[in-house]
């Protein structure tokens, strides 16, 4: 990889200051960025590691019941610490990548990268999470802007993510056999005021909400409510691992399964 300057600040403010340099880039757990840099597909002049910032670590339940997860919290910690308060989210975190990846990869890194096949975007979008940065709070509905595209500005870092905890939720991931990312993943979250369904891995526009399914489930939270609903193959990803038609089909199957598991 290309050489770069490495910095590991101990506070958010130091990290923000360090990221003001030209071509500086934040480094979360590095589980995607480092392989990318090995291919010389990224060339930051400076990497600012966020792993040494204590205030960005950890999982806590707020007074309103929402779950706040520090941006630099590894997946393995979320899997353990959120198990009681938000089991569907914990299960999702506990099935990202593999154990070693989960010990390094962070929620902030995943959401900042917004890989179209990543798991966390589905959880954040279906939960109606709020992406908290050093500068502002961004509702998930505004945050995800297409494959690898987010609302983050240059130098802005995700300090935490606030998840409202639904009454019931479930995430169904269908593995892409090689990468073990989601070939398709569906997160269904049932709140008192409605149901949110987010699909990852499927669309060329990245994670999205399946509004027809949400409407159907809002009035009848059962797999049967989804009968006859289908996603169009148009705009779905087609690659070695699955055709657009297959992904559209799979999204519907997984949605039903998520509803069954959550109900």
């Amino acid at each position: 990889m290309y050489e770069f300057e490495f910095e590991r600040p101990g506070s958010i403010s130091d990290a923000v200051a360090a990221l003001k340099t030209d071509e500086a880039q934040a480094l979360g757990g590095g589980q995607t960025l480092i392989p990318t840099m090995k291919q010389r597909l990224a060339n930051p002049a400076k990497l600012v590691s966020l792993t040494g910032i204590g205030e960005m670590q950890g999982v806590c339940v707020e007074d309103d019941g929402a779950l706040t997860i520090g941006g630099a919290t590894p997946h393995a910690v979320v899997a353990e610490k959120a198990a009681a308060s938000y089991p569907a989210l914990a299960a999702l975190a506990g099935n990202i990548g593999d154990p070693a990846v989960r010990n390094r990869g962070t929620i902030g890194g995943s959401l900042a990268n917004n890989d179209p096949s990543a798991c966390y975007p589905a959880a954040a979008l279906a939960s109606g999470a709020v992406i908290v940065t050093n500068a502002r709070e961004i509702p998930a509905d505004d945050y995800f802007q297409g494959m690898f595209a987010t609302a983050l500005e240059e130098g802005e870092i995700i300090t935490s993510v606030r998840f409202p905890v639904p009454r019931a939720a479930n995430y169904q991931k269908f593995d892409q056999a090689a990468s073990r990312f989601a070939l398709v993943g569906v997160f269904v979250a049932r709140f008192d005021d409605g149901v949110r369904v987010a699909v990852t891995g499927a669309s060329e526009d990245g994670v999205f909400r399946w509004s027809e399914a949400e409407a159907a489930l809002g009035s009848d939270f059962s797999a049967a409510a989804l009968d006859g609903l289908a996603l169009p193959a148009d705009g779905m990803i087609g690659d070695l691992h699955g055709t657009p038609e297959y992904r559209a089909h799979l999204a519907a199957v997984l949605t039903r399964r998520a509803v069954q598991a959550a109900a």
Partner: peptide, 8 residues
């Protein structure tokens, strides 16, 4: 456990 090739 971590992957030593994916950590500086």
């Amino acid at each position: 456990d971590v992957k030593a090739c994916t950590m500086f």
